[in-house]
Every structure is written in structure tokens, then in C-alpha cells.
């Protein structure tokens, strides 16, 4: 079982398309961060213009946590596409390419084979998400520092600086 998963993972990570997801995130995330770093003040001004009249905001609002939150909120639509690119190949791609037939002639039960594919799909997804969390948090903090996180939905939530990390990690 373990060796089946390893074989599946080897197949996943020996293809170029597997890294498209990593590269896409590796390019998009810093792009958003740099943009925020340059023009983020305007964005915050705009979001908070009503509130600023009534309240006085203190501290570094344009921080790595905010950048991370914005990235998460924007990219969560696109990530599944990147994931499907690879996981779709695990079964459908192999079936269409005829390689699945070669696998089925091996002395391995179908259930185990499918389960191994499922697990390796999960591992790939986890790796991609981890990668995204890594660069959006670390790079964001490196560029913009830390601070309280402001989230504007129906109401404005302000999370204290030391309360933010676990919430973001959970979000991923």
C-alpha cells in the first residue's frame, strides 16, 4: 500500500504540469503582495473611509496578515483548477491514455490502487496549499511586517496581532 502511494506520488511529481500550480502560486502571490505594498494604503483608505471619520486606527494596518487574507479570499476560486490539472490525470488521464489498463494487469487489487491514487491526490493538494500558505504568509510578513488584521465583511472585524496566525492557518 505504502509503495503504491509512493509510485503514484513519483508519477505526479515527475510531470511538468505538476509544477504549474506551484509556479502559478509562486508568481501570483508575490505579485499581489507587491501591488499591495505599493498601493495598499489607497485600498485601505477606500475600505475604511467611513470608519476613519468616526474612529482612529492605530498601528500598521497594511501588514502581511492582511495581504494573506486578501490573497486567500481572491485565490480560493482558482486553486481547485490548479489541483484538477493534476488530480484529474490520476484516473481519467490514465484511463484515456490506456496506461490504466497496464496498471490493472498488475497483481494489485483495484481498491488498493484507487485508494493509493486518492491518497496521493490528497498529498498533492496539501502540498500545494502548504506552498501557498508558506509564501503568502512569510513573504507578506517579510515585505509588510505584522499587525492587527482588519476584515471587512458585513461588519468590520479586527483581530489582534497575536490572534491572527492560527486563524489564517486554519483558513488554509
Amino acid at each position: 500500500m505504502f509503495s503504491l502511494i509512493r509510485i503514484e506520488l513519483y508519477k505526479i511529481f515527475s510531470r511538468i504540469r505538476t509544477y504549474i500550480g506551484f509556479i502559478a502560486i509562486g508568481l501570483l502571490v508575490p505579485l499581489i503582495q507587491v501591488a499591495l505594498f505599493i498601493d495598499g494604503e489607497t485600498y485601505i483608505e477606500f475600505s475604511l473611509q467611513n470608519l476613519k471619520e468616526a474612529f482612529d486606527f492605530q498601528g500598521n494596518l497594511l501588514n502581511g496578515y492582511l495581504a494573506c487574507y486578501i490573497i486567500l479570499a481572491t485565490l480560493y476560486v482558482h486553486i481547485p483548477f490548479l489541483i484538477t490539472l493534476v488530480t484529474g490525470d490520476l484516473l481519467a488521464g490514465e484511463a484515456a491514455g490506456g496506461t490504466f489498463r497496464v496498471l490493472l494487469t498488475r497483481p494489485v487489487s483495484r481498491t488498493k490502487l484507487l485508494f493509493a491514487k486518492f491518497i496521493s491526490g490528497l498529498i498533492y493538494t496539501a502540498a500545494l496549499i502548504f506552498w501557498m500558505a508558506l509564501i503568502s504568509l512569510l513573504l507578506g510578513i517579510a515585505i509588510m511586517g505584522t499587525g492587527d488584521l482588519i476584515v471587512i465583511k458585513n461588519t468590520v472585524y479586527i483581530f489582534a496581532e497575536d490572534d491572527v496566525m492560527w486563524r489564517l492557518l486554519a483558513a488554509f
Binding site: 508519477k11 497496464v102 494487469t105 498488475r106 497483481p107
Partner: peptide, 18 residues
């Protein structure tokens, strides 16, 4: 099935590899 397949090598239709 499994113990038998271990001792068989086969090309079934087109042999597609990776």
C-alpha cells in the same frame, strides 16, 4: 487473481506506458 497475475506478463491491446 493477484497470485496468478504475479506470474503473468501481458500486452493487452496497445501497450501504453507513461
Amino acid at each position: 487473481r493477484e497470485s496468478i497475475l504475479r506470474k503473468i506478463g501481458a500486452i493487452v491491446e496497445k501497450p501504453d506506458l507513461y
